[in-house]
Simulated scan of single mutants.
Amino acid sequence: MNLDGWFTSRLDRTKAAGLYRTLPRTMSSEAEADDQKQVIWSSNDYLGMANDKRLIAAAKTALCQSGAGSTGSRLTTGNTDWHGKLERKIADFKRTEAALLFSSGYLANIGVLSSLPEKGDVILSDQLNHASIIDGCRLSKADTVVYHHIDMRDLEEKLAAAQGCERRFIATDGVFSMDGAIAPLDEIIALAERYQAFVIVDDAHATGVLGEAGRGTSEYFGVCPDVVIGTLSKAVGAEGGFVAGSKALIDFLLNHARTFIFQTAIPPASCAAAYTAFEIIEDSQDKRRLLHSSVRTVKAGLEDMGFTVKGGRTPIVPVMIGDAQQAVLLAKSLEEKGIYAPAIRPPTVADGESRIRLTVTADRSLREIDDLLKGFHLIGRELNMVK
């Protein structure tokens, strides 16, 4: 069998399991499928920033001034005033001493976890952490111990068992991307202090969303993790990632994180857009209030119908289906009614936990929310998922 034949054979198994994927044709808030308008209910643009005219104007200005690309890594030709300006804004926003930009949140996680822990150390990683944390742990010279999802008793037992290690790092998502659950950061940090561990938090899905000023899980719980990782591509509406923390941490990463050293810098236009977004997030709470009100309406409506819904006080609303093929069928039926909400299946989630992962955004109207709930109710009854 040649190489293409081997690929085809493996893809046939993927299709038979109901796990085959194709790329959709989407925009950030609307999509066109078979000439039918689709309202997007799966975007991570939680505050509707990606199409905000103020961000677009800022990006255009920087684009004309600095060009389309950054031309190199930050340590060679890719460092501009916009990069430093945005890093200072992020540090101020996150209430840390300093910050460092990466080309994505994925690269930020890998850069931190592959460079900070050393041989003889241990990383305690939540069972449902994002793939970027898992991959960072795999690249680390430290051992990795997985603790049960947000199970503080299990985490404490494993911290106690790891006292012989040189250093202990706890790595967790702030908000878990598939479940919408919020990590109990106050409890995690209390355990870290008791067992002399360091806390690394990926705040990708919390930045701009949680806390009075949208500063994320740290503000939400009133605590200060050792390392805060985030992205500019979700509620901030731009592109790129960052790490925020002490000046010593940022200096260390600048010199040791391979995903920073060897990666082309994000374009200045992306920096300008993100800078503007942070200013908007800081100056106004209206978008967050509207967002959380819409989340409550959607969750209550689905639960009243009889659907099993997970998630905490976040815009991620997982509607649990279980069977992968049933989840795909529900997603297809919703799409036919102009509701774009793809099925999430293994390996992204565990077997038997396929779901429709809804995300609520601040730019969804009351009419669109009503259409969503009516669509779920009608199709759920047709497919015998609810009564």
Rank of each mutant, 00 (worst) to 15 (best):
S9C: 01
R10F: 00
L11Y: 14
L11W: 11
T14H: 08
K15T: 05
A17H: 06
L19M: 12
R21W: 02
R21P: 00
T22M: 06
R25E: 14
M27V: 00
S29G: 02
Q36F: 09
K37E: 08
Q38E: 08
Y46C: 03
D52N: 15
L55V: 03
A59Y: 04
K60C: 04
S66Q: 14
A68E: 14
T71K: 14
T76F: 09
G78L: 08
D81F: 03
G84W: 01
G84K: 13
E87L: 03
K89S: 09
S103A: 15
G105M: 06
L107T: 13
N109Q: 08
V112Q: 06
L113P: 08
S115W: 07
K119M: 03
G120C: 04
D121R: 08
L124W: 08
L124F: 12
D126V: 07
Q127L: 14
R138S: 12
D143P: 00
H148S: 12
I150N: 15
D154S: 12
K158V: 01
L159N: 06
A161T: 03
A161K: 12
E166K: 15
A171E: 04
A171S: 15
F176L: 05
M178Q: 13
A181D: 13
D186H: 08
E187S: 11
A190P: 00
A192E: 04
R194H: 04
Q196N: 14
Q196Y: 02
V199K: 10
I200D: 03
V201D: 11
D202E: 12
D203V: 02
A206L: 00
G211E: 11
A213M: 12
S218C: 09
F221N: 05
V223E: 13
D226T: 09
D226G: 05
T231R: 01
T231A: 10
S233Y: 02
E239M: 07
G240A: 06
A244D: 06
S246W: 01
L249S: 02
I250S: 07
D251L: 04
L253T: 06
L253A: 03
L254P: 00
T259Y: 06
A265W: 04
A273K: 11
Y275S: 10
E279D: 13
I280Y: 05
E282Y: 00
S284T: 12
H292M: 14
R296H: 11
D304C: 00
G306Y: 02
T308M: 04
P315N: 03
V317K: 11
P318Y: 01
P318N: 05
I321E: 05
G322K: 10
Q325H: 13
Q326I: 02
L329P: 00
L330S: 10
K332P: 00
S333H: 13
L334A: 01
E336C: 01
E336Q: 14
K337C: 07
K337Q: 14
Y340N: 10
I344N: 13
R345I: 15
P346I: 02
V349Q: 10
D351Y: 05
G352W: 09
E353S: 09
E353P: 00
T361A: 10
S365M: 08
L366Y: 07
E368P: 06
I369R: 02
I369N: 04
D371A: 11
K374H: 10
G375H: 11
F376Q: 12
L383P: 06
N384D: 14
V386H: 09
V386P: 10
K387Y: 03
K387A: 10
